[in-house]
Amino acid sequence: MKDNNRLLSRMFKYKECYLLVAPFYIIFSIFVIAPIAIAIFFGFTDFNMLEPPEFIGLSNYLTLFFEDDVFLVAVRNTLIFAVITGPVSYFSCLLFAWLINELPRGLRSVMTFVFYAPSMSGMLYVIWAYIFSGDMYGLLNQILMSFGFVKDPVQWLTNTETMLGCIIIVQIWMSLGTSFLAFIAGLQNVDRSLYEAGAVDGIRNRIQELVYITLPSMGPQLLFSAVMQISAAFSVSSVCMTLAGFPSTDNAALTVATHAYDFGMIRFEMGYACAVTTVLFIAMMAVNKWIQKIISKYADV
């Protein structure tokens, strides 16, 4: 009883905070949390989107892990994909944001624009389909053939060996968006006087400055971008489907997210699709926990 009173009085003390949080949280609960909760619940049901869902316990998950061979292919591809694109794009975002921040003011704005350009239009990556196109119009084939590197056009997006590589390149090219801009803004937030103090303390070059001053004071941005990269790297789907087609040859570009799309939107096995997504979600949460731990060891967050 006493604890309850204390909690209530503490809540009352912060009443304005609840006022600030309320508009966001009400909308967020209705349009984000509720759908996610419903989707997680569907994961325990057999649901074809026409008849009401029927509760079947863990059976979707058992099928997923023990019977669905294609799921394992999807997991393998997703892991390859995430392990490459996640870190590569995270560090290139950081690297380019840092390099651009070194430029004088006018040039800095221009270069920020140039590097952010790929993210400017949501669908511009379709252009890559022309570049990688396997027929005689494909720009890359054209260039390689005119230099004599290859004799016949390479089927970049249908060949199982090159498919994933091409998608990885496009994804990295596209991913210099959210994290990159957050880093740019973060770098501009670093207290300038720290650099002057650093110079007095014997910071000799820009690499030392980055490692000892800039990065440790950008903890929140490092954390933000890590979450964004994890979410992008593990749930890649539309790039795969647009470039490699769906289904792709031998499922070489099948990811967990497209696997879920397959069951949810094409086969109408919504319950199963939700189970796939829930597994992906749990995996991403675990990776996120682990990355956060690493970052908080290194920087103030």
């Binding site: 809540m11 949390i33 759908p35 996610i36 989707a39 979450v227 997210a257 879920a260 799309y261 992906l280």
Partner: peptide, 29 residues
């Protein structure tokens, strides 16, 4: 304020839930 921690961690969790399957519940809502 009381509730700060878990309310915020729900927001981060939401960022990690990939989209496709929430489309249907969203439509229903």
């Amino acid at each position: 304020f009381p509730g700060n921690k878990w309310m915020f961690s729900l927001v981060v969790a939401a960022l990690l839930f990939s989209g496709t399957v929430t489309a249907l519940p969203q439509y229903i809502i």
